[in-house]
């Protein structure tokens, strides 16, 4: 449990807006990044991230001090993301499928590698990004929370409201799916004679 969070929440509950601003500042990148990778669209992710913090704010009076803040925050974001994806799927099923290539871009290119390696690394990353985007949302959220946000099984179980055993299973399957996809891609490159 994070004592800094507890203090900030306590102060925010008493109506100190500056304390709430500190909380937003502390978590905005993580929440935005999580939502961005979940929904794959920058504008939607920004709206959802803002909505997440507004919901936190309007529900502060329901939050019991002493309970961990981080899983609660992620849970609100997660629920919004899943709702959004569900709604969008209904809309998309009416229109032609839209691919959002922004999703496939990594924000930080690795400058320490040579040009050829950089190219290969970039392709691998693009491929992995696609593979993550192709995972069902339930699996995507688990792998992002575990390896992107360094959350524990217990925290993920609280965030997604599923038992720890389910978190483990999904994590295992998600990693295996990514590994097999990357392997297949590598084999294709190998066959291409690189």
């Amino acid at each position: 449990m994070d004592l800094v969070d507890q203090k900030l929440v306590h102060r925010a509950k008493r109506g100190e807006e500056s304390a709430f601003a500190e909380l937003v500042d502390k978590y905005k990148d993580r929440i935005f990044a999580y939502l961005y990778r979940m929904v794959g669209n920058r504008e939607d992710a920004l709206d959802l991230a803002q909505e997440t913090f507004l919901r936190v704010y309007s529900n502060l009076h329901n939050f019991k001090l002493g309970k961990p803040f981080r899983p609660w925050l992620y849970r609100i974001a997660s629920n919004l993301a899943i709702d959004h994806l569900r709604k969008r799927r209904q809309v998309l099923s009416l229109d032609a499928p839209v691919s959002d290539d922004k999703l496939l871009r990594f924000e930080l290119p690795d400058k320490s590698l040579g040009p050829a390696e950089q190219h290969e690394q970039a392709e691998l990353r693009a491929y992995l990004a696609q593979a993550i985007a192709d995972l069902p949302p339930n699996y995507r959220s688990v792998i992002l929370l575990r390896h992107g946000h360094d959350l524990s099984y217990q925290e993920i179980s609280k965030i997604l409201q599923v038992p720890v055993s389910t978190v483990k299973t999904r994590l295992f399957r998600a990693r295996e799916a990514l590994r097999l996809k990357l392997n297949k891609e590598r084999d294709l490159w190998g066959a291409g004679g690189e």
Binding site: V24, R37, F106, E107, L128, I132, G148, H149, L182
Partner: peptide
């Protein structure tokens, strides 16, 4: 994979995000 997922998951929010949020309160 775990390393790449870790890098992939990092995206910064716009710098005026907090300000925008506080204005909505």
């Amino acid at each position: 994979i775990t390393q790449l997922v870790g890098e992939f998951a990092v995206v910064a929010a716009p710098s005026n995000f907090t300000q925008g949020c506080m204005q909505q309160l």
